[in-house]
C-alpha cells in the first residue's frame, strides 16, 4: 500500500489546468504543421498560419489559446494499491480546478444547474472519470474541453445490420452537419461498442490519445486513416471557409458489445484539443 497525500493531486490538477490552456500539446502542433504543408486551399493556408501564430503568442505570453478554457475533464487512473490521505480524492480534484482557473486567469464557464443556470464562479465542478488499475501509482490527465465543439457531437444506437458502412456514414454525417461550428480543423473522437453510457466515454477518451498515433489494432488503424481521408475530402476546411484540412485526426476506441447492438458515439473537438498528463 502506497500513501498519496491528496494535496499533491490538487497541486497537479491546478498546474495542468493552467499549463494546458496556455500551451498547445505537441501532437496538435505537429498535426497543424503537417496540415499546413499539405493544404492546397489559399484561404485555408492563411487560416492555419494564423492558428500557429495564435498558439505561439499564447504560449509565449502565457495567456489562454482560446477564451473558452473549457470544462475541466479530469481522468484518474488509480492504482489499486494506492491509499489517499489528507482528505477526499474528488474534493482535491475540484480544489485544483478552482485554484487553476482562478490563479491562471482562465474563464469560468460552468453553470450550477443545467436548466436554472447560474455561473459557479470558479469553473467547478470538474468532470471526473475514474478507473481502477493495477499498481500503486496515480495517473492524472487534465483535458479542458470547449463547448463549441462539444455541442456538435452525436450518439447513435446503431444495430449490427448497419455494419461497418453504417458506422462510417454516421461519423461522416456528424462531421458534415457540424460544418464550421466546432472550429475546424477538428479532432474526431469515436467510440464504438459497449453500451449507451460507455460508448460516450469511449469517444471522449479517444480524444486523449495523441492524433499522431494510430489504434494498435490494424483494422481500426486503417479505419481511422480512411475516415480522416474522407473527412478531408468534404472540403469544409479550416473555419469552414473551404479547404483540405477539416480534421487533424480521427481516433477510435472500442469495447465489446451486446449481440443486439453496435453503439457509436462521436465526440468532436476543436483545433485547441488540450490534454496533459502527470503520474504520481
Amino acid at each position: 500500500m502506497r500513501e498519496i497525500d491528496v494535496s499533491r493531486i490538487t497541486e497537479a490538477v491546478k498546474r495542468m489546468c493552467i499549463s494546458s490552456n496556455y500551451h498547445l500539446p505537441a501532437d496538435i502542433r505537429q498535426a497543424i504543421g503537417t496540415a499546413l504543408a499539405r493544404e492546397d486551399g489559399s484561404i485555408a493556408r492563411g487560416i492555419l498560419e494564423q492558428l500557429v501564430e495564435n498558439e505561439k503568442m499564447a504560449s509565449e505570453r502565457e495567456i489562454p489559446i482560446c477564451q473558452d478554457t473549457g470544462m475541466a475533464c479530469v481522468f484518474l487512473e488509480v492504482g489499486q494499491d494506492v491509499h489517499f490521505t489528507g482528505g477526499n480524492l474528488y474534493d482535491a480534484v475540484h480544489e485544483g480546478v478552482r485554484l487553476g482557473y482562478t490563479e491562471g486567469y482562465l474563464r469560468k464557464s460552468v453553470e450550477r444547474d443545467p436548466v436554472r443556470r447560474g455561473n459557479t464562479g470558479d469553473n467547478t465542478p470538474a468532470m471526473i472519470t475514474t478507473d481502477i488499475v493495477p499498481g500503486d501509482r496515480l495517473k492524472i490527465t487534465v483535458a479542458p474541453k470547449g463547448f463549441g465543439s462539444e455541442n456538435m457531437g452525436a450518439l447513435k444506437m446503431l444495430k449490427p445490420s448497419a455494419g461497418l458502412e453504417g458506422i462510417k456514414d454516421f461519423i461522416l454525417e456528424t462531421v458534415e452537419q457540424a460544418g464550421p461550428n466546432p472550429c475546424p480543423p477538428i479532432v474526431v473522437g469515436v467510440g464504438i461498442g459497449g453500451n449507451f453510457d460507455h460508448v460516450a466515454l469511449l469517444a471522449k477518451k479517444a480524444l486523449l490519445r495523441p492524433v499522431t498515433t494510430r489504434h494498435p489494432d490494424p483494422f481500426y488503424a486503417a479505419l481511422e486513416e480512411e475516415l480522416l481521408d474522407r473527412i478531408n475530402a468534404l472540403g469544409i476546411g479550416p473555419q469552414g471557409f473551404g479547404g483540405r484540412t477539416t480534421a487533424l485526426g480521427v481516433n477510435i476506441e472500442t469495447l465489446p458489445t451486446h449481440i443486439a447492438g453496435m453503439p457509436c458515439a462521436v465526440n468532436i473537438s476543436c483545433h485547441v484539443t488540450r490534454h496533459e498528463t502527470e503520474v504520481i
Binding site: L51, E53, M57, I63, P64, G148
Partner: peptide
C-alpha cells in the same frame, strides 16, 4: 462577420 474561432489570444491584441 466571422472572426477566427479559437484564435482568442491573437484577436485580443
Amino acid at each position: 462577420l466571422g472572426a477566427i474561432g479559437g484564435a482568442g489570444a491573437l484577436l485580443s491584441q
